[in-house]
Design a protein around this nucleic acid. Structure first.
Lengths: 136, 136
DNA sequence: ATATAAATGAAAACTTTTCTCATTTGCATC
DNA sequence: GATGCAAATGAGAAAAGTTTTCATTTATAT
């Protein structure tokens, strides 16, 4: 099943790649840092180098299998690509990440870029706050 | 004039602090990295350590004198705080930064946070693209 | 003038990510 | 199935940006 995805992306089917995919698919957290993936790997009893995790995730990003979020203050997290564009809400207490789609905002962004003479290539929007659970 | 700002912020009035403020005020670029400030300092013939630049900028941020932007991919730039909230458009070719304010987007963000049960503390929106100059 | 708490500079440390290079592996071909 | 070769891997070094440490210097209240 996933081997096909790798082959389609022009990547050899290797154990590290399959395992990284498996972790991304089975993790209860949709958003994982390279470190998270690395630790999950070791917990599964799989030998892997952290450099390989970074390489694999970067290749997956290039192949459109995952997307990378650059969170405030430096470190990146990865999520399985599901074909939908969406933005993120981050809880500053528990680091939970939620997703949302808002067509009004999307439209305004395009209008702003046009207005400023920019050819928009990308955008990133993060809303930081305290999630419902953490407010109690 | 600026000495007052420093004193109000509970910071001693020192040469490095005054000089960093001066650079932020007089630079033709509104958005400067710590490295930029450091280099400008050396060009002015002022001795300063890079660590001091970072410390001073971080203190200024805490005091509300400057704000820090975390640009995609890691490094931060600082701008003099002008009391207005605004978001940013970044040119991926020349790294020029423009600012914009959009009340529609602001309103939608608040609505989304509320809808998801988040108590919004902050948000960041960056539109990446190719600016008018760089399109030619 | 002086004491003292804060600020500074230089270098080391830290964090996250990428690179290097020798070794191993997947896979097409025989 | 054996074999050859390009691609992938692991370990550690390196890079980039930022923070910390600590001995020395400086600003400011007394």
């Amino acid at each position: 099943m996933e081997s096909q995805d790798l082959r389609k992306a022009g990547l050899k089917v290797t154990l590290p790649r399959l395992k990284v995919l498996e972790i991304l698919e089975n993790s209860e957290q949709r958003h994982l840092s390279a470190e998270d993936v690395y630790k999950a790997m070791l917990e599964m009893g799989e030998e892997i180098g952290l450099a390989t995790v970074y390489r694999v995730l970067t290749q997956f990003e290039g192949a459109g299998l995952v997307s990378r979020l650059n969170i405030d203050g430096g470190h990146a997290v990865f999520e399985l690509e599901d074909g939908t564009h969406h933005d993120h809400l981050l809880c500053v207490r528990c680091n939970n990440i939620e997703e949302f789609v808002d067509e009004v905002i999307e439209k305004r962004q395009r209008a702003i870029a046009k207005d400023k003479g920019f050819e928009m290539t990308d955008h990133s929007l993060y809303i930081y706050g305290i999630c419902q659970k953490c407010q109690k």
